[in-house]
Amino acid sequence: MRIQLVNKFVVLGIPCVVLGQSLGYGVLLYLLSLLERITEEWGLRLRLFALPFLTQDSPIAQVLIYTVPSRRARRPGDLA
């Protein structure tokens, strides 16, 4: 019974960690894209984070644009 309980925590915990990590990376990339815009593309006209084909008007949509591909890249089989 104890092993089944630990198994449940692992099965439920890994997706939560992956989702949290993906969301964290999405927010970080969004903040870096804001910094890039404020500094006028690092003063060199060099775009690393605010790429034209990824840019959205809504901050929530922008975070999702960065989060979803990161989430899709992390499947349970990728953890091994």
Rank of each mutant, 00 (worst) to 15 (best):
M1T: 12
M1E: 13
R2S: 13
R2F: 02
I3V: 12
L5V: 13
L5A: 15
K8E: 14
K8I: 13
K8R: 14
F9H: 13
V11Y: 02
L12W: 13
L12G: 15
P15F: 07
C16S: 15
C16N: 13
C16T: 14
V17F: 11
V18A: 07
L19H: 05
G20N: 09
L23I: 04
L23V: 04
G24H: 05
Y25N: 14
Y25Q: 13
V27W: 01
L28R: 11
L28W: 08
L29F: 06
L29G: 08
L29Q: 10
L29T: 09
L32P: 07
S33R: 06
S33T: 08
S33A: 11
L34E: 13
L34T: 08
L35G: 11
E36N: 02
E36K: 04
E36W: 08
E36I: 01
R37Q: 13
I38C: 03
T39S: 12
T39D: 01
E40H: 03
W42Y: 12
L46M: 05
L46S: 06
R47V: 00
R47E: 03
L48R: 01
L48C: 07
F49A: 06
F49P: 08
L51F: 13
L51K: 14
P52Y: 13
F53D: 09
F53E: 04
F53C: 04
L54V: 10
T55S: 02
D57L: 08
S58D: 11
P59C: 02
I60H: 12
I60S: 12
I60G: 14
A61C: 10
A61L: 12
Q62F: 07
Q62W: 07
V63R: 11
L64W: 15
I65T: 15
I65C: 14
Y66K: 08
Y66T: 04
T67H: 03
V68K: 05
V68C: 05
P69F: 10
P69Q: 09
S70V: 04
S70H: 03
S70M: 04
R71L: 12
R71V: 07
R72K: 08
A73R: 12
R74D: 09
P76I: 00
G77C: 00
D78R: 01
L79S: 00
A80F: 00
